[in-house]
Amino acid sequence: MQTRGHPNRLGIRGWVGGGRWGFERYMYTLHRLSGLALLVYFTMHIFVTSTRAVGPDAWKQTMSVVSGPLFTMGEYLVFAAFAFHAVNGIRLGAIELGFAVGRPIEPVYPYQTSVGGQRRLARAVLMIAFVVALWGGLDFFVWK
């Protein structure tokens, strides 16, 4: 679109929002960041695990490189990102296919919105993701 006045598009700053924005905006941002982190990890994961096709020595050597507390911590962060991305992904799937936004209603003040309607679902997602991440933490660091 041709500029007709002084440009005033927010740019990437508009993605992050913050401060006065709603709860769902933060989940949107977190979903993006966790997705990107998972994609980066996944690409590396393909290369690392593919050494199994070369033979046991290559595999054992790679595994010795990616072991140790720093890598375990990194893997745990990936697990936590997965926990959030997966549980929030279920919420988004249900919403974006029109199942969790409710039916159209008569707008009577104070307005009820689909965003308010799924707020409990959003809170449940955070809680479940937290519990899954906590469970994973116990498994990664305590029960090992």
Binding site: F82, A86, G89, I90, G93
Partner: peptide
């Protein structure tokens, strides 16, 4: 694809990374 990942990656996580579980 998200739905497929949910099932398969869930299995993968339990088998590979959650041995305690």
């Amino acid at each position: 694809a998200g739905a497929v990942i949910l099932v398969l990656l869930g299995l993968h996580m339990v088998i590979m990374h959650l041995s305690g579980t």
